[in-house]
Amino acid sequence: MSRNPGEPFPFARLMEVNEQRPSYPRSLVEMAYEQLLSMLVTMKIPPGAHIGIEALARQLKISQTPIREALTLLEAQKLAYKIPNVGFRAANLLTPEDIDALFEIRLMIEPAMAALAAERASEETLQALVSLSHAMAEAADGNDVAYAQFAEGDARLHHLVATASGNRFIAEAIEGLHVHLHIFRFLVNTNATRKALSEHQVLIDALLARDAAAAEAAMRAHLHASRQRMDSVMTADHEPELPVDDTATAKPSTRRGRPRRKAAATDPAD
C-alpha cells in the first residue's frame, strides 16, 4: 500500500484502524525496509555504522533503488541519517541524558493520555488495539524480523492510544518523540517483549472497561517498567550486544554518542 513519507511510525505503514498488514507479495521497498529495520533494531548494523547500499543490494538480491527508498523511511524515524557525499549511517544509541528526558516527558503525557482514551476511544479503535496485541504476541518469540515487527507494534499501540485520546496535540507529541524503536535497540536479547505484552494487556483491559483511573495507572506502570528495563541493560556489565553483519556495516562512527565495545567489519564500497 502507499505510504505518506511524513508518517513517523511505519508499523503496517501506519495503517488506518481497520486495515490489515499488506498481503504478499510485498513490494521491494517494503522487503528492503523490513530487512533493514530488523538489522538496525537488533544492532546487526551497529550504532553509527556506515550502511553499505551496494553490499545490501547483493545480499538481498535487489537493486539499490528500493534500498535507498527504505533508508529514506528509516531516516524519517531517526534510525538512520544521511551525510552528503558519504551516504547513510545508523543512528547512535540514545544517551543516558536522552533517556532521562524522554521518560520524563512520557510520564507527564502518556498516563493522562490513556485516561482520556478510556473515556473517548471508539469501539473500532479498542478492537484494533486487541487485534494488535494478538499480532504482537505472535511476534514476541520470533526471529530478528519478528522482533522488529514487535517494536513497530509497540509504537503503533502507543500511537493508537494517543489518537484515541481525541487530542491531536497529544498524538503529534507522542509521534514526534520517535522513541519506541530506539528503546528496543537497547532491549534486544532480553525478555522485554513478554513483559511488555503483559503490561499492554493490563492497559487494554482498562481501556475496554472504560476505567480512566485504571488506564492511567496501567500506562504509568508500563512506563516505569520500561525505564527499569532500560536501566538494567545500561549498567556497565550488561550493555547491549552488538552482533556484526559483515555485508552491511562498517566500523561505528565515534564522532557522536558512546564508544561501543565491538567494532564491525570494514566498509564495503557504496
Rank of each mutant, 00 (worst) to 15 (best):
F88E: 10
F88I: 05
R89G: 08
A91R: 01
A91T: 13
L93E: 02
L94R: 04
T95W: 09
T95A: 12
P96K: 02
P96Y: 02
E97F: 10
I99M: 05
D100Q: 11
A101Q: 13
A101I: 07
F103L: 04
E104G: 13
E104S: 12
R106Y: 04
L107F: 03
M108K: 14
M108F: 07
M108I: 08
E110T: 03
E110L: 08
P111V: 00
P111H: 05
A112L: 12
A112I: 03
M113R: 04
A115C: 05
L116C: 10
A117R: 00
E119K: 14
R120F: 07
R120S: 07
A121I: 00
E123R: 11
L126C: 06
L126F: 01
A128Q: 00
S131L: 04
L132S: 01
L132C: 03
H134Y: 12
A135P: 00
M136S: 04
M136A: 02
A137E: 15
E138V: 11
A140H: 05
G142V: 06
G142C: 09
G142P: 12
N143D: 15
V145H: 13
A146H: 13
A146V: 00
Y147D: 06
A148G: 05
F150I: 04
E152G: 08
G153Y: 01
G153A: 01
A155T: 01
A155R: 00
R156P: 00
H158N: 06
L160Q: 08
V161N: 03
V161H: 03
A162C: 14
T163K: 09
T163C: 01
N167D: 10
N167E: 04
R168Q: 14
F169G: 08
I170A: 13
I170H: 04
A171T: 08
E172H: 13
E172S: 14
E172P: 02
A173D: 14
E175H: 15
E175V: 14
E175R: 11
E175F: 15
L177K: 14
L177I: 15
L177A: 14
L177V: 10
V179K: 02
H180P: 04
H180K: 07
L181R: 15
L181W: 03
L181T: 13
H182F: 08
I183A: 06
I183S: 00
L187P: 01
N189M: 12
T190S: 14
N191I: 13
N191P: 12
A192G: 09
T193H: 11
T193Y: 02
R194A: 15
R194E: 15
R194V: 15
K195C: 12
K195V: 15
A196M: 15
L197E: 09
L197I: 07
L197C: 06
S198E: 15
H200S: 03
V202N: 12
L203E: 11
L203W: 01
I204T: 09
A206N: 04
L207W: 03
A209F: 06
R210Y: 03
R210T: 04
A212I: 00
A213M: 10
A215H: 02
M219L: 11
M219S: 07
R220H: 13
R220A: 11
A221N: 12
A221I: 11
H222W: 03
L223T: 07
H224A: 13
A225D: 05
A225K: 02
A225F: 04
S226A: 08
R229I: 10
